[in-house]
Simulated scan of single mutants.
Amino acid sequence: MPVWFREILIGFLILGAAFVAGAAANFFLRLLRTQIFLKRGKTLADELLFAARWPVFHLIVATGLVVIFSRLKANYPNQVASWIFNGVDAFVFIAAVALFVYLLYRLSAAGLVWYSQLLADRSQTRVDTQFIVLFNRLLKGVIFFLAVLVILDHFKIDIKGLLAVAGISSLAFALAAQDTLSNMISGFILMADRPFRVGDRVVLASGEAGVAVEIGLRSSRFLTDDGSILVVPNVELVRTRITNHSFPDARVRVALKFVLSHDSPVERAKGIFERALSATPGILREPEPALMLSDLTENGLEFSLFFWVPNLEQKGRAAEGVRLRAFQLLKESKIRFAQREVWLKENGMP
Rank of each mutant, 00 (worst) to 15 (best):
L112S: 05
V113E: 15
R106V: 02
Y115M: 10
V113D: 14
A109N: 06
R106P: 00
L119A: 10
V101T: 15
A90Q: 11
A98C: 06
A98I: 02
F91Q: 08
Y115Q: 12
V88E: 06
V92H: 02
A109R: 02
Y115E: 14
A95T: 11
F91I: 13
L119P: 03
A96K: 09
L99R: 12
V97T: 12
A90M: 11
A90C: 02
L119H: 03
I94H: 04
A96Q: 14
V101Q: 08
L118I: 00
Q117F: 01
W114G: 01
A90V: 11
L119K: 08
G111C: 03
Q117E: 15
A90S: 14
Y115W: 09
Y102S: 14
A109K: 01
A98L: 06
A98V: 01
D89I: 02
A95L: 14
A110D: 06
F91M: 14
S116T: 08
L119T: 05
I94N: 10
L104H: 03
L103F: 12
L107V: 14
L107N: 04
V97Q: 10
A98G: 13
Q117D: 15
V113S: 07
F100H: 06
L99Y: 07
Y105F: 15
L107Q: 11
Q117V: 01
L103V: 06
D89K: 08
V92Q: 09
D89C: 00
V88A: 11
W114P: 02
L103P: 04
L112H: 03
D89F: 07
A95G: 08
A90N: 13
